[in-house]
Design a protein around this nucleic acid. Sequence first.
DNA 1: CGGCATCCCAATTGATACTG
DNA 2: CAGTATCAATTGGGATGCCG
Lengths: 124, 124
Amino acid sequence: MDEVLGFDPYNPDCPSRQLVDRIGDRWTILVIGVLSDGPARHGDLARRVAGISPKMLSQTLKGLERDGLLTRTVQPTSPPHAIYELTERGASLGPLLLAVENWARTHMQDVLDARHAFDEAAPR
Amino acid sequence: MDEVLGFDPYNPDCPSRQLVDRIGDRWTILVIGVLSDGPARHGDLARRVAGISPKMLSQTLKGLERDGLLTRTVQPTSPPHAIYELTERGASLGPLLLAVENWARTHMQDVLDARHAFDEAAPR
DNA sequence: CGGCATCCCAATTGATACTG
DNA sequence: CAGTATCAATTGGGATGCCG
């Protein structure tokens, strides 16, 4: 009772598969998570999404901009400022991803325990 | 108002980062999506998650089993049957991922349009 | 049929350094 | 400060082939 409305991520040829792929890349969830708190500059993002390289950040942002999930506004001041802000569409995705993030936080310990038990049971 | 409860995916050294990574791999979302409809056999999954290779399917399933998100039950019948079923924990994640899937389906056309417009505006 | 192991290629990723 | 270019390292992931 599901894939009846045109797009079906379960079909590898369907473009919506790309969307699932994008959402599921290492950084998209985190970047959108940060922007869900409000607009941020390139540097803010780099700081808050600890561990991301400038390259991946740019790449991720560009992809999201292309998909119309966020807007990029450059202020040509002396030190240039670039502001990223979620569009309405991007904002609509935010809560879903935050829910996932939150799930991860909530269940992390259980998962850690499960892994431990699993590794004990089947050593190598 | 967020990362105050022990685990913080924004910290690259936090194990919850791995969870986000796992959720965000190409297949986890789809596999859990299928299993949210009920238990399924290896072959069922291979068929419904079109495009996945047996290797990646096994790998994904093993990882999810290790994390305690699903159980694997083998029936040593003549042709062996392996049944995969979400645990309670896995089932709790299902709806969140289905929501994301559904979002992808709903907004795919808009995203496609946005991409087109973006590519027009900035050729190359 | 389920599924594990090996090999191998290609696409991603990351560190770093450099330019506007 | 924002963003890009280059290069090296990693790894995702497909194809096969072999066992239970």
